[in-house]
């Protein structure tokens, strides 16, 4: 009985350690908000989530400019290579956006306060509100 209690105590202690590590790892993998990215003072690869204020396409430079807003209203300009985006997602003018749910991955340049986008990730939350169909 005493031995079992000792073993259970060790198991519970390790459980708490695992839970702590797991919780920290999961919490840390959450996407950054725009306001958090703007506070960075060094170049870094980031994944940022924000509200889509608008987009602008520069056909000559082949760049897509994306304006994201954070929870505190701060704004971040992100620039994406249009060709990369079109190869992956199709013509820019036909991209479907869920403005509440835009996630961008890229390199943040604190000197120019610009995010150079390497990928556009979008959440699928809105999809489950869609009608079911077999088309």
């Amino acid at each position: 009985m005493k031995k079992s209690l000792k073993l259970f105590s060790v198991a519970v202690a390790l459980f708490i350690v695992f839970a702590g590590i797991g919780y920290y790892a999961v919490k840390s993998s959450a996407y950054m908000d725009v306001s958090q990215v703007l506070k960075l003072d060094h170049r870094a690869k980031v994944t940022v989530r924000g509200y889509l204020v608008g987009t602008q396409y520069d056909a000559q430079a082949k760049k897509l400019y994306i304006l994201l807003e954070g929870k505190d209203g701060s704004k971040l300009v992100a620039v994406a290579d249009a060709k990369y985006i079109e190869d992956k997602y199709g013509p820019i003018q036909y991209l479907q956006w869920d403005p509440n749910n835009v996630v961008l991955q890229g390199i943040y340049d604190p000197q120019h306060k610009v995010l150079v986008v390497t990928d556009i990730l979008e959440g699928c939350h809105s999809n489950y509100g869609q009608p079911a169909a077999r088309t």
């Binding site: 999961v26 996407y31 990730l121």
Partner: peptide
Amino acid sequence: YAMVPISYAAPRIASSSL
């Protein structure tokens, strides 16, 4: 087993998730 509830609740623990 601590990792089971953590991974299940991950979208809620993190402030955002795909």
